[in-house]
């Protein structure tokens, strides 16, 4: 049993995206982001394994000093204690959230050494990564792509009812009076996705695409379309963990294809994808057939409300498809 706390994560709402609805150990904290992260650390100091939530990762900017301390305490404490906290927070664009509900956080998070950072692209991985995060003795940040928070995955969680809509019926609170409502949890099995291990979602030979979170399913769609239209096949890697990341998988794929594109939606200046590019150049310069690429979010101060801003700021399917097209087409 582990406490889950944050702004509005307990009853009646169960979180803005209802991700914690019906969980017995979820409770509402005061409206204080630094208090939430700080208290989680305190619980961990005392031997607990809390899960705390920052309602939107955009509010995490208010907690940076605590995140820094959480990452460095074991190291600075001669390894004498662990910091088994999980910080879950919705991340990225896709809900018309404008300035303060659309930010990405993984690049900033990747600079907090001592943290593990994961970002699933589907419900099964979200479940598996969350269980691994809770089991891990270190601080783990679980970044949940807002755009995917209410989607049903192709792969079901073990024990999840197969009939569409059935799960919703069992665990979604009614719109009306919910004071006496209790969830009926299906008998789901444990499923762990190891931290630091990517997965090859599509296997191909022409080029490698590395992504995670919201842009991952778009990369898969683009790969499927390009295979049909142009006969190019892609390795599409779902990185799943931002740190530690599966360099072995990237490296092996690149040795095969000699072409690589990294896709994410965080702002492009000092983006985590740029770190991957640096390693690609350092370690695989002579293996590359064409220049390596990254498609990322534009370096603007926020995502504007109007859809024109959002569409022009973070990669959309046509942008991704075009970048993959150019990557595969360029003459070696």
């Amino acid at each position: 049993m582990t406490d889950i706390f944050g702004e509005d994560v307990g009853p009646p709402l169960g979180g803005v995206f209802t991700a914690t609805q019906g969980l017995k150990t979820a409770w509402n904290s005061p409206l204080d982001e630094r208090g939430i992260v700080g208290a989680a650390m305190g619980i961990a100091y005392a031997g607990g394994r809390p899960v705390c939530e920052i309602q939107f990762c955009d509010y995490g900017f208010n907690t940076i000093d605590l995140l820094k301390v959480a990452g460095n305490q074991r190291w600075a404490g001669a390894g004498h204690y662990s910091m088994p906290i999980v910080l879950m927070t919705p991340s990225g664009s896709g809900i018309r959230g404008s300035l303060y509900h659309s930010h990405s956080f993984e690049s900033i998070a990747s600079r907090l050494a001592g943290w593990k950072i994961v970002m699933p692209s589907n419900p099964l991985d979200a479940y598996g990564l969350m269980l691994s995060a809770i089991a891990d003795p270190n601080p783990v940040m679980v970044l949940l792509p807002k755009a995917l928070l209410r989607v049903r995955g192709d792969k079901l969680i073990p024990g999840e009812p197969e009939e569409e809509g059935k799960l919703k019926e069992l665990i979604d609170a009614p719109v009306g009076d919910r004071s006496r409502w209790r969830p009926r949890w299906p008998d789901v099995q444990e499923h762990f996705v190891p931290l630091g291990v990517g997965t090859l979602v599509r296997e191909g030979s022409h080029a490698t695409v590395v992504s995670y979170g919201r842009t991952l399913p778009l990369c898969v769609q683009a790969a499927d379309q390009l295979e049909k239209e142009n006969g190019w096949s892609f390795d599409v890697i779902d990185l799943r963990s931002i740190f530690p990341y599966d360099w072995k998988m990237i490296s092996a794929s690149l040795m095969k294809t000699g072409r690589i594109l990294i896709v994410n939606e965080d702002t492009e200046v000092t983006n985590f994808g740029e770190h991957l590019l640096r390693r690609v150049i350092d370690e695989h310069f002579y293996d590359l057939l064409v220049r390596p690429r990254a498609l990322m979010g534009k370096h603007v101060p926020g995502i504007g409300l109007n859809q024109v801003y959002e569409k022009n700021t973070v990669p959309q399917l046509p942008d991704i498809k075009q970048a993959m097209h150019e990557l595969a087409e360029e003459e070696a």
């Binding site: 982001e33 939107f56 955009d58 509010y59 900017f61 208010n62 404008s98 300035l99 303060y100 509900h101 926020g302 504007g304 409300l305 109007n306 024109v308 801003y309």
Partner: peptide
Amino acid sequence: ARGKGGSMHLIGTEVGMHGASAV
């Protein structure tokens, strides 16, 4: 706010009203 902010981030510099964070 030129369609960038929306409801939560109204700014009226000409009338002495400054913009807000969502935090």
